[in-house]
Write a protein that binds this DNA or RNA. Structure first.
Lengths: 201, 201
DNA sequence: TGTATTTATTGACAAATGTCAACAAAAACT
DNA sequence: AGTTTTTGTTGACATTTGTCAATAAATACA
C-alpha cells in the first residue's frame, strides 16, 4: 500500500498537538509505530473472547461494536472517521473482550499495538498527559450514551440519535441503529414512518 | 475536625502506589491539597447546572448521582467508600453539570479542587500516569453499567444488580435502585416478591 | 413512644414495545 | 439484467412494564 502515512495521520496529530505540543522525537516515534491497513466491509477487527491488542484510529471507516445478550447481537457503539476505537476493558487490562468489533464499510485504519504503545509510554512519559485527556473525552462520550439509553421512550431515544448521529444515518443499516437504541427493528421502522408522516402534513 | 488525614487517605495512596510509586514530595503535595469534610445524609454535593469543581474521594459514604428526565429523577450512579466521584463531563471541561450528586448517608469525604489538581499536574507531570490509569478503570466500570442497561428485561437487570452491588442493597432505598435500573419502583417490588417466593419453595 | 412522613407493596388497568408472519423493497452476486 | 439474499415495512396479537390508587410497612422526628 502506497499511502502517505503522515498525511493520513494528520487529524490524529492535530488532536494530540491541541492537548500539548509533541516533541519531534515523540511525534516521529508515534508515526513509526502506527501501521496503515485496509479492511473490507464486514470484517471482524476483534472477536469476542480474544484480547484487544490494538488501538484503531479510523481514517476512513464506519465501524460498530456489539455483544451477544441472550441470542441476540446488541450494538454497543457506532464509530466513524477520526474516532479512536478499542474495546476498553479488554485493551486496558489485556484480557478477553466481551464484545466484537466489525467494519460496516471498506475501511482505512491506522493501528497501533498495545506493546508499541507501552514502549511509547516508557520512552516518553509525558505522553500520559495526552492519553489521559483523550480517555477523559471518551469517558464523557460514553456518559452521554448512557444518558441516551436512560431516556425512557423509543421515540426519545430516536430523537437523541437524530440529534447526534444524523450525518451517519444513511451509512448504517437500520437494524443496527435499532439495536444501538435498544429497541426492535420493527419499532424503529414504525417510529420512522410516523416521523415522515409528520413532516409531510 | 480532628481527623488523622494521613490514615484516612491511606486507601487512596495505596491505589496510587499500586499504579506507580509516588515520590515523597508528590505524596506530600497531594496530601496537603486534600481536605477532609463531613456531610450529612441527603446533602447535595453538586447541583445540576453548577460546575463540578472538586474530586470527591469517598472515605465513608454512600452517594448517588441523578439527572432529571421529563419530570423524573433518574439515578445514574451509586457510589460507596473508596470510590472517586466527579461529574465527569462537568469536571473535565469545567462547564455546567447535567447531573446532581447527593449523599445517601452521613459521609466522610476527602475533597480536592480542580485548581489544586491542575497545580499538581503542573508541578508533577508524572502524575498524569496515575490519573490516566484511574480514568481507564472508571471508563471500564461505566462500560459495564452500559452493558447492564442494555440487558433487556427488568429481571435480568435486577440480577445484574444483585451480582454487582449485593453488599450495598440494604444501604440504598429501593426506589433509587429501581431508578438506577431504569424500571419503576412497582416493577422492582414485584420482581423482589417473586425472588423471595422462589427461594422459599 | 407516638405521630407524621416517606417508602414499599399490591391490584386493576393502560400503554408501549416485542414477537411472529407475510410481504415489499433494496442490495448483493452472478 | 435477473436471481438470491438481506433488510425494511406493516398488521395482528402477546407480553412486559408503567401508571394510578389504596394500603401497609418502615423510618424520621418531635
Amino acid at each position: 500500500m502506497d499511502y502517505d502515512k503522515q498525511s493520513l495521520l494528520q487529524p490524529l496529530f492535530k488532536t494530540l498537538h491541541n492537548i500539548e505540543k509533541l516533541g519531534t522525537e515523540l511525534e516521529q516515534d508515534i508515526e513509526n509505530v502506527f501501521v496503515i491497513e485496509e479492511y473490507p466491509k464486514n470484517y471482524i477487527l476483534l472477536h469476542e473472547g480474544h484480547v484487544c491488542k490494538h488501538v484503531y484510529f479510523l481514517i476512513d471507516a464506519v465501524v460498530r461494536s456489539y455483544h451477544i445478550i441472550g441470542q441476540k447481537e446488541v450494538t454497543s457503539r457506532l464509530m466513524f472517521s477520526n474516532h479512536i476505537v478499542i474495546s476498553a476493558g479488554s485493551f486496558f487490562t489485556q484480557t478477553a473482550a466481551v464484545e466484537t468489533i466489525e467494519t460496516l464499510s471498506n475501511c482505512v485504519i491506522a493501528t497501533l499495538s498495545y506493546i508499541d504503545l507501552q514502549s511509547i509510554y516508557a520512552k516518553h512519559p509525558q505522553f500520559n498527559l495526552h492519553t489521559r485527556i483523550i480517555t477523559e473525552q471518551y469517558f464523557f462520550m460514553q456518559e452521554q450514551r448512557l444518558y441516551m439509553l436512560r431516556k425512557h421512550s423509543a421515540v426519545l431515544k430516536y430523537e437523541y440519535f437524530l440529534d447526534h448521529y444524523a450525518n451517519y444515518l444513511q451509512h448504517i443499516p437500520q437494524k443496527y441503529i435499532a439495536s444501538f437504541l435498544n429497541i426492535s427493528p420493527e419499532t424503529l421502522s414504525r417510529i420512522r414512518a410516523k416521523f415522515g408522516e409528520d413532516s409531510i402534513s
